[in-house]
Design a protein around this nucleic acid. Structure first.
Ligand code: ZN
Ligand code: ZN
Ligand code: ZN
Ligand code: ZN
Lengths: 132, 132
DNA sequence: TAACAAACGTTATATTATAACAATATGATA
DNA sequence: TATCATATTGTTATAATATAACGTTTGTTA
């Protein structure tokens, strides 16, 4: 019944490794890490990633072509994502901030376009890197 | 004196083709289009793109790996970009909205991180595609 | 159990981007 | 003008990221 059980074998393997990582993982680094578990080809990784993204279990950090597990249990279906990215140490953190998400989810302009989804990436210096 | 004059030959050629395009251009499609002008290698394109981005003349649409000319003369240096992207016709438009940029430029959270730059991509249906 | 959809495995290939090296051009300044 | 520094160019090769196409297997459900 838990959502995790609806995941297939490869999807579980790959979600697991992404969840355990401390930083966003790139597809081929995931591939390298799961070869001992029998996943041999890029497509196997990319297919799992695609599914996990659809389910909101992971997100893609577009500016880095890398994948992170979703920390904010809010976004079961990933249609509103925001990240902070340190330009020095490259630390990536998912931003969970109601003021921000409320603002963006209700954003409208004069284009007549209906926004269903967004991805926001902030860049700057993290606490540690600011000090140096 | 005009900023355009500080651009090199290759940079001008590539900015020109991006400005004339009606949609975001991919690097290799740019390459194909400028081969008659003597630009033969990917690196020549990527180097010009990199410089043009730094100058704020163009932006990269991360989710599409494509490049658009900056329309909003506000962002001379591109540190705050926002796009709307239609999921059907793939039309991409740079959003110039003061309420949005003011909100994001002054956004702070409890992470202690100082945000200097952001990129936001909205997805949805454009006016035309909503009707069908 | 028949029919369908989702996931899998595999090979090959497409697409996007950078490394490394050498030459030339440009602009500032002594 | 000579010289120094920096930016730009040209070129070949290669790295990194992602998908096409094919057939098989597994799971669901009518
Ligand atoms: Zn999330
Ligand atoms: Zn940092
Ligand atoms: Zn712009
Ligand atoms: Zn559209």
């Amino acid at each position: 019944m838990a959502q995790i059980q609806t995941l297939s074998k490869n999807q579980k393997i790959i979600l697991d490794i992404i969840e355990k990582a401390k930083e966003p993982l790139k597809a081929y680094s995931i591939l390298f890490n799961v070869q001992k578990k029998g996943i041999k080809a890029p497509l196997q990784v990319y297919r799992a990633l695609e599914k996990l993204i659809k389910l909101g279990k992971i997100h893609k950090v577009e500016s880095k072509n890398a994948f992170v597990a979703c920390k904010s249990s809010n976004c079961e279906v990933s249609k509103a994502t925001a990240f902070s990215i340190c330009e020095i140490c490259e630390k990536v953190t998912e931003i969970a901030n109601n003021k921000l998400s409320n603002f963006l989810n209700s954003f409208e302009d004069k284009s007549g376009m209906k926004y269903k989804k967004y991805n926001l990436e902030f860049f700057g210096l993290c606490k540690k890197c600011k000090k140096t």
